[in-house]
Every structure is written in C-alpha cells, then in structure tokens.
Amino acid sequence: MNFQTNIFINCPFDNEYKPLLKALIFTSLYFRFEPKISTTASSSDSRITEIMKLIENSKYSIHDISRCEPLKSGEMPRFNMPYEMGIDIGCSVYGTKIQKTKQCLILEKVKNRYDTVISDISGQDIKEHNNNPKKAIEKVMEWFAANEAVPIKMIPGLSTIWKKYLECKAKIEIILLEDGFTKKEIKDLSIPQYISVMKSAL
C-alpha cells in the first residue's frame, strides 16, 4: 500500500449515505488517490485490526461523523465513526515520523453540530456537507487544496468535476444495464466493485 496516496474513508454504509460515499470515492479516484474503506462486516477484533492497518497506511483520512445519532428514538447513537476517528488522530500524534504527516478531514451534516457532543475535536478541520454529495465533493477539493495534497492548478471548478462525476455514473449504469445487471444490483454494488467500476469510468 502506498502511504502517500491512500485515503482512509471512515463513514457509514447505509443506503441513505451511499450517494455521499460514492461522491467521496469518485473525488479520491479523480485526484489519483486510492480510497481505503473497511469492508469487513463483523464487529469482531478482525474488523478493528483491519481498520487500524488502513489508518496506519493512509496519509489522508476522511471521517464523516454526520450519522452519529440514534437510528431510532430512544436508541443509543452509533460510535464507530468517532472511535475510528480517535484512533486516526491518535496515530498522527503518537505514530512514527511519517505518520505524524497524516492529514484528516472531518465531515459533518451541519456546521458546529458536533460542539454539543464532542467538543474536544474543535480545532480540527471540520466541514459540513448538508447531506449533499456535490457539497461533499467541494469540501474534499478545498481540503486537498489547503493541504497541498493536489496542486491548486490541477483542481478544476466544482461544476466541471460534478459533470465528470455524473458522466462516470452514467457510463457505469448504461454498461451494467446492457450487461444484464438490474437497477437494484447496480445500486447494491459492493464498495470494492464500485471502486473498480469507477476507476474504469474515469
């Protein structure tokens, strides 16, 4: 794994989040980064071991804490994303010399929502996406530019990259439909499959 080009994406995998996740995957691939996402379904030791390896080997990380809320009224919120974010920040503070160069972007649904529940992360790079994939792409591009992860002259306008995103999605949809995939099968492509087809579309 190439530390300099890996981006660890820490986010939920539910259907409501998928449009945002797809946008994050596309943006990473568009700028020649390799998105690293834990695809292990279990909550056992193997999952967290896999996540720690991904964190250790990724210079960049995107943590989306917008879904840290109870799924149903009266339930506890999900803590996986803040937990993994904590490991990543810890790695960049206590890790090796190269790991101290890690950069992370924290995405939120709305501005300053996290203040009430996790105020210790104030001072980190936190951006809101308003549950809008286009906005998420914009925030990631701004973060790339601010951290010189991508030279500014290489970063196109938001409308250009959004058009490219839609074109890539159309290519994937049309070819897969022609090949006999159903709409549901296309929608339910696994994350590694989606990364693979998006690489081809770009």
Binding site: K171, I172, I175, L176, D179, G180, F181, E185, L189, Q193, S196, V197, K199, S200, A201
Partner: peptide, 12 residues
Amino acid sequence: KHITATLAKKIN
C-alpha cells in the same frame, strides 16, 4: 454478477 475485465474495458 461480477465486474469482469471485459466489462471494465467497455465502461472505459
């Protein structure tokens, strides 16, 4: 279904 190399080439 699988994403085959042929399919990836077609998309590309």
